[in-house]
């Protein structure tokens, strides 16, 4: 299984500007090291994250996604994080229905003061997704289009 040990999960993190992005900055200021698998996309608020962004990230090769914002009650926009949480509650069963393991998308609250928690969170996501293995759902679908014989369209197991 030499191939499996080489697998490095590709993680996209959608972070709110006020809490988690600042928390990730604080981890930097404190020189708290973490795994480099993550690419951060900053938005004003987690409440402004369209679920299609997450789907698109999977399509572009992400193996896991983190959405992280302010703690309940701390949202810079008063209620944005609650909307994000509700949207996630609706979106999660849809993911399961589509055959995407919901563990590939994680949701967390990390405040601007929690550099340490950011490190734990991101390492946790990387480790979880590393254990799940690569996300191949989209490659398989794409392969259907490119391969006339359709052999690549195999089982519904998309990880």
């Amino acid at each position: 299984m030499a191939e499996e040990t080489k697998f490095e999960p590709r993680i996209v993190a959608f972070l709110c500007n006020w809490c988690t992005y600042a928390g990730a900055d604080l981890a930097g200021t404190g020189r708290n090291q973490y795994q480099a698998n993550v690419r951060v996309i900053k938005l004003p608020c987690t409440g402004g994250i369209d679920p299609l962004f997450l789907i698109k990230a999977f399509e572009r090769g992400a193996d896991g996604i983190l959405v992280s914002g302010c703690h309940p009650g701390d949202c810079h926009y008063n209620s944005g994080n609650y909307h994000a949480r509700r949207r996630w509650n609706v979106f999660r069963p849809l993911l399961e229905f589509c055959g995407i393991n919901p563990e590939r998308i994680q949701f967390s609250w990390v405040s601007a003061a929690e550099g340490g928690k950011w490190v734990e969170t991101i390492n946790g996501v990387v480790d979880t997704v590393r254990a799940l293995g690569p996300f191949e759902g989209y490659q398989k679908i794409n392969a259907v289009g490119s391969d006339a014989s359709g052999e690549a369209a195999t089982s519904g197991d998309t990880g």
Partner: peptide
């Protein structure tokens, strides 16, 4: 942001450069 979220948290040069 290649300082707080990259160079300061990833000590390995090839990794930090790729990111």
């Amino acid at each position: 942001n290649i300082r707080e979220q990259c160079s300061w948290v990833h000590p390995d040069i090839p990794t930090g450069t790729d990111k």
